Amino acid sequence: MSGVELGVIEGYYGRPWSWEARREAVARLAPHGYRFFIYAPKSDPFLRRRWQEPHPAPAGAELRAFSTFCRERAVRFGVGLSPYEIYRDFGEAAQAALSAKLAELDSFGLDDLAILFDDMRGDLPGLAASQARIVHWIAERTQASRLIICPSYYTDDPILDRVFGQRPDRYLEDLGALLDPAIEVFWTGEEVCSREISPGHLDRVASQLRRKPFLWDNYPVNDGPLMSPFLHVRAFTGRPAAIGPHIAAHAVNPALQPTLSQIPAITLAESYRQGEAYEYGQAFLRAAREVAGEDLARALLLNTTQFQGFGRDRLTEENVARMRARYERFDHPAAREVLAWLDGAYDISLAEIEAT
């Protein structure tokens, strides 16, 4: 195993995984060195717009049971909370609501608590100071042994400035200077969905944050109206093992398809283990065989270009018919995910994202 702490952060928009799928992912990935799982799907309103309300009893029971499942496998369990724009008015009412939510989350059995300030307006004076104050307030009250913050500006990508307002000058530097060194900070790289991540880039960000970034890797995630017509199944590339000493940990944001997501996740672990000897094509085949078996692995390899290069919207009727016939032969969850993708079951509209 590599020295890099690997894990999953379930941080996508759209159709959520089932609890059984989460358990299967933990069981599959733990032997490959995945040591944490952070539950933070954007579809859970009680962690986002309705964060001030408790989870319904059945959902709370599922979270407690999943926490136990993870810990029994030496996997840290965490939750990502997005207290929507709480930094705009962190008065007595907000503090009381947040205190109640933290108590609820503690009851689930947390090892990790992520406070997510992403996808919120950020062009506000004193943003870093307000967020640091809130996170320190939380640190004094949570029972989680690790606290991680996602900044409002978690990448160099200018798309965040266009959507959420121009980032304040020296935002990262101020946040890094104000935060307790024990608090980790998520970072996605040079882009929201970074094509590659280099040691030099990570070192520059570490100097700004005064700590190694906790990598939130937006691959193989495929949420949103632009990405949901694609299946991201290829092995990891652009994350050389050389970045390991430059990060605090490496969290993978998976695709909407839980079984297929296991394939690239396994290849990331292999990349860290093998270093310069890593071959992404061979890594894909080994991981796909493990997850899906020999015959289905070969079928997935055959269609990788259509999945990831063309996308469903560019497939002809003949392409779709051939693929449907190919995957209907398999009684396997990975094949069923391909068929559901062909049917448009994972499509996400912009309106759905804005309502989340």
Rank of each mutant, 00 (worst) to 15 (best):
E276V: 12
G3H: 15
L209I: 03
L178D: 11
F66C: 00
P125I: 10
L63Y: 00
P158F: 11
V338I: 11
R239N: 11
I266R: 09
C193R: 07
L29Q: 06
G78N: 01
F117Y: 12
Y327G: 05
G224E: 09
D180E: 04
V221D: 07
F236L: 12
R273T: 12
V4D: 01
G165W: 02
G126Q: 01
A283I: 04
E72S: 05
W187S: 03
E62P: 02
R326F: 08
L231C: 14
D156C: 10
D343R: 11
A93S: 15
W17E: 08
D217E: 10
E72I: 08
V79D: 01
C150P: 03
A144P: 10
A139H: 05
R329K: 05
G224Y: 11
L124E: 13
S207M: 04
A182D: 07
Y280A: 09
R326V: 05
P181C: 03
F90C: 04
I348K: 05
E191C: 03
I266C: 08
F230C: 01
I183P: 13
L260W: 06
R167T: 14
G165V: 09
A97L: 10
H201D: 08
I138G: 04
W17H: 12
S207I: 10
L178S: 13
R146N: 15
A128K: 01
R76T: 14
E184N: 00
E352Y: 07
F46D: 05
G275W: 10
F108Q: 00
Y272P: 00
V338G: 05
F186R: 08
D112H: 08
F37P: 06
I134P: 07
V79Q: 02
S67D: 00
I115L: 14
E276Y: 13
G293P: 01
R71Y: 08
E294I: 08
H232D: 12
R88N: 12
V8I: 15
E191Q: 13
P56Y: 02
D111T: 14
I353M: 13
A129T: 09
A335W: 15
R22F: 11
R15Y: 15
D331M: 11
H250E: 06
G176V: 14
F186G: 07
G344W: 13
A74V: 05
N218R: 02
S349L: 01
A97K: 04
Y153E: 10
I134N: 07
A100R: 15
V79F: 00
F46E: 08
V26Q: 11
R286S: 11
D203G: 06
Y280F: 13
N319E: 05
S271Q: 05
A132Y: 08
A248N: 05
G189L: 06
F108S: 01
P158Y: 03
G126M: 07
A241P: 11
P225E: 11
D343M: 01
L179F: 01
L102H: 04
E317P: 07
G122K: 07
Y39T: 10
P56H: 03
E352I: 10
R234K: 14
V221T: 13
A351D: 13
A21N: 14
A248C: 13
D217K: 04
L209F: 14
R146E: 14
L302C: 06
H246A: 06
D180K: 02
Q274E: 14
R204I: 09
F69A: 00
L301Y: 14
A40I: 02
D331P: 00
E85M: 13
T68M: 12
T316A: 11
P199R: 09
G293N: 04
A182W: 06
E10W: 05
L342G: 07
Y13L: 15
G3V: 09
E24N: 13
C193T: 03
